[in-house]
Amino acid sequence: MDSDSNLKIIIVEPSPVIQTGLKQMIESNSEYTVFVCFCDFELFMEAEKTGLQFDILLINPAVISFYRQFSIRNMFENHPHTFFVAIIYGYVSPQILENFNSTLDIYEDETKIVYKLQQIMRRFDELSIRTGRENVDLSDREKEILVLIAKGMTNREIAEQCFLSIHTIVSHRKNIARKTGIRTVSGLTVYAVFNNLLSYNDLSDNN
């Protein structure tokens, strides 16, 4: 799987119920998947020391020992682009929250949480576009797949032709949609022709 272009989301939360709930909400309401969950902060820090990379960290501030809660930014100096989100279900001092980019109150109803999550993803996207962190051009593989989509092929057909799994094709499609801003097949067809990936004549019979 092309993991470079995928957003890495990590959850650090002691309650397995909340962990699973958040993971499920993120995955069923956005184009992203949760990379890994940790119950324990020390385990997470060990993984971090061995070079674990992540883009969005959803973390319950209560798991961090008290005297370190105020300096979470300093602890993660190696991750300047990471977006920190505090998982809240009790009183947390505003001074601690200042260290986070955003918060998520688990007592909110589902629509509000989903909305908040989408807002967080969008803000992260904007941030990374602004800082130019993400490679915004389509990769050669993505271009190849885009052409096949424009020709009207299904995910299964594309997977067979490229010797890739359907899952990989789906994740390529998500990245193509995010980079171009275009989601419909006919829109992608226009893109392909305008960018000389496909000649108009290739299309005349099936479009």
Binding site: G181, T184, S186, G187, V190, Y191
Partner: peptide, 15 residues
């Protein structure tokens, strides 16, 4: 609205 959004992207980015 999805198609409308595509149209916006095409006009802004690729004409």
């Amino acid at each position: 609205n999805v198609s409308l959004n595509d149209l916006k992207n095409i006009i802004i980015k690729y004409l």
